[in-house]
């Protein structure tokens, strides 16, 4: 297991969240590139191969699912792992994402950045870290 050999593309439009995830993933040793919207995300995917795509579903312009559909059409045999970044209550979107080949999804509000990193590691290297699915449930009122 060597994170430095793995290339990750993070597509997330929220600056603070994108930068936080980049920071934590880089700290763990991953090679991370990022994009702020669907179009630039797709361009980044065309430019070079990635091992894993962390993809926000809600993006300005081309959304995450459109990006994924476009990418899968152009690269049907790609072995890149896709993890969707979602908010709670997007079950229908998640289902559609799975049909497009996404392997997992994370509810951003329910995962700490470290848990996100763990999920990435699990996806790339198998279940070696604690804190996998099911996601942490929100605290009740």
């Amino acid at each position: 297991m060597n994170p430095s050999t793995k290339k990750i593309l993070l597509v997330e439009d929220e600056d603070f969240i994108r930068e936080l995830y980049i920071r934590q993933l880089t700290k763990e040793g991953f090679q991370v590139k990022s994009a702020v919207d669907g179009v630039s995300g797709l361009n980044a995917l065309k430019a070079e191969p990635f091992d894993l795509l962390l993809l926000d579903v809600m993006l300005p312009g081309m959304n995450g699912l459109q990006l994924l559909r476009e990418f899968k059409t152009q690269n049907p045999s790609s072995s890149m792992i896709t993890i969707l970044l979602t908010n709670l209550g997007q079950e229908a979107v998640i289902k559609e994402g799975f049909e497009l080949g996404a392997q997992a999804y994370l509810i951003k509000a329910s995962y700490t950045p470290d848990q996100v990193v763990n999920e990435v590691k699990n996806a790339l290297f198998g279940n070696q870290q604690p804190g996998g699915t099911p996601p942490p449930t929100p605290q009740p009122s």
Partner: peptide
């Protein structure tokens, strides 16, 4: 509520990293 969640997710993310 959706709009509130985005900054809140950020706040929680940064704070939890800081605590760790």
């Amino acid at each position: 509520s959706h709009e509130l969640k985005t900054p809140l997710t950020s706040i929680m993310g940064y704070l939890s990293v800081f605590v760790d």
